[in-house]
Design a protein around this nucleic acid. Structure first.
Lengths: 336, 336
DNA sequence: TGGAGGCGGGAAACCGGTTTCTCACCGGTG
DNA sequence: CACCGGTGAGAAACCGGTTTCCCGCCTCCA
């Protein structure tokens, strides 16, 4: 065998092979495959053992084509590395799996252009889509919606667009943090801003703009959503004169904390610090982070169920808002 | 409109619609779609604008069926939440995308049974599979291989099975850690074991069994792969009498570190501590973790390229081993 | 015993693309 | 002017399933 010549289409085992082997028709094999119970037990058994013997595995593409749906729901996240999305994906997967489906995950790398492209692609594969915290412009979002495929968006509300959405109550989360800090006697608070396009950042800012009701004076500093960015911005945070820092999320807070620790700044004695999201690591920081717990599994589950309803034709899904919960730990302290 | 009645198959826009609209045949539309250049420019333009007008989007299922491949490569990971796998997935996605493909990710939740089930499912969808650190028994793995679909496995070697694999040089990584600790004067070292089924754990143990060559006396303690487990085992680690702890991975090390910090144990003054993998957070711990950097992006890229070669029919892929690199930071110190 | 009704199971249409095959039409050549 | 190779584009086969339609056979009842 000198050189294999072109690997001629690799002869896949098809339903016809099984039918032949079992001495039945393809229709019957299909029936057995799908649990239609109008097949005589004996025949069904023959078919099953033929499938076993041949190691038959129905082609997903053919099934999808014939059935008119793929049993797949697509998920687009801005960053797979963010644990924020894992729990969502996990919960959604669980919902999908229990319905015999699966989840197709893609990562847009925070890039709005890529995001649009991938969404376009996902639409061709999936029966329904979950866009997590999409950064793409309103117009793109509008184009994706009303395309027939059920669409659900988390953590973004687009006014005037008939878009099913599930959001987290960031607003109330920030309010809770403000209340907490105010009670501890803080007056001057620094907010480290997240990504510019993120709706989540907008909501936080919106909530903070009402912080004077707590007697708080809020200043802001552009930052980002990563530990690195938090680490980098920490010195500037110190110079702001604030006695408490509200980081965009836990990652940023951990970065700030690391830098503070290097600089000999004590938390919370010298300055208080809060995160947001309650990622696992928040608990294990030194000191453990005061943060806002976002029930992401619940979000994922709600998303799955909502998508299920939309796909089943339930036109009228009302927007859901997931509540959050303040988690007080020792990274915040009373103003001495 | 009282109640929508059964949502009758939702009239998808097909290639035939485009053909009709453009006054061309479906074959021609397909040609335009696939960039076959034997179509007259004028006609092609008409087709393109028809596609635009109708918002046409070719069905992935139909394309997959007709082409005999889906353009998708499947990835199975034991735990999506582990950053270890993100970089792999990202790198692999990049490779796939540059070839016009995509990646279908599934998460087995560390459960060998689920793992097998999902692999089975993935085989129906994908042109090729990457199994990351599979925990499933050898027999299952054997069943999956030789099923026709190209298969690549990372971080697991199965003797006597013709299985393409890419592994990380855990062995040498542990050796490097041992050498480092020995040089610092440590003699008694504790290893916190990872998951029992993990090949990665076996490799570490294998390497440690040769640690006496460094003059090290190694004891072990069952632990796991999570921060929680590290946190939990920390007190027992103290009692082992070891002067240095090698954690299964960075997560575990961070948990240990957190507990140590609570207990007032100073690292590295009282005890040295190392991780493995170099996750982002390792750098930001207090103190920053000495660990072993695993070039995961390189692993992902290598996996993508290897899969590409296998799929192209290149029978003879030799097993690759990705080198690692010791990263010395301040969680390890000289024995006083 | 004959006819109605029920049921198991096969033939074939269909899902929406890709690709092969074929043909009409073109300019070029002897 | 007849013939030929080349080329653009349509018709139809095909990918591997699902599902509808229909038919033959068996049972039950009159």
């Amino acid at each position: 065998m000198v050189a294999s010549k072109r690997a001629k289409r690799a002869k896949r085992i098809t339903i016809a092979d099984v039918a032949r082997e079992a001495g039945a028709s393809v229709a019957t094999v299909s029936r057995v495959l799908n649990g239609v119970d109008t097949v005589a037990p004996g025949l069904a058994e023959r078919v099953r053992s033929a499938m076993d013997d041949l190691g038959y595995r129905p082609s997903a593409a053919a099934q999808g084509l014939a059935r008119g749906r793929s049993g797949t729901i697509g998920v687009l996240v801005p960053d797979l590395a963010n644990p924020y999305f894992h729990d969502i994906i996990k919960a959604l997967s669980a919902v999908a799996r229990s319905a015999g489906g699966r989840v197709l995950v893609m990562d847009s790398n925070e890039d709005p252009a890529v995001e649009r492209e991938l969404t376009e692609d996902l639409l061709r594969y999936a029966d329904g889509l979950l866009l997590c915290s999409p950064r793409m412009p309103r117009a793109d979002l509008a184009a994706m919606a009303g395309r027939g495929t059920p669409l659900l968006v988390t953590n973004r509300q687009v006014q005037g667009l008939a878009l099913h959405s599930i959001t987290v109550d960031f607003f109330r989360g920030i309010m809770a943090l403000c209340g907490h800090l105010a009670r501890l006697g803080h007056r001057r608070v620094l907010y480290l801003e997240g990504p510019r396009h993120a709706w989540a950042n907008g909501e936080r800012l919106r909530a903070l703009s009402g912080a004077e009701a707590f007697g708080l004076d809020v200043v802001t500093l552009p930052c980002g959503s990563t530990t690195d960015e938090g680490y980098a911005v920490a010195p500037a945070a110190l110079e702001s004169g604030a006695t408490a820092v509200i980081a965009y999320n836990d990652f940023v807070a951990l970065g700030v904390l690391a830098r503070f620790s290097e600089l000999g700044v004590r938390v919370p004695d010298d300055i208080s610090l809060t995160g947001f999201d309650e990622i696992d690591m928040a608990r294990f920081a030194a000191p453990p982070l005061t943060t806002v717990a976002v029930p992401r599994d619940r979000l994922g589950q709600a998303a799955g169920e909502a998508l299920g309803r939309i796909m089943a034709g339930g036109e009228d899904i009302e927007p859901e808002t997931i509540p959050v919960e303040l988690r007080v730990r020792s990274s915040t302290g009373a103003l001495s």
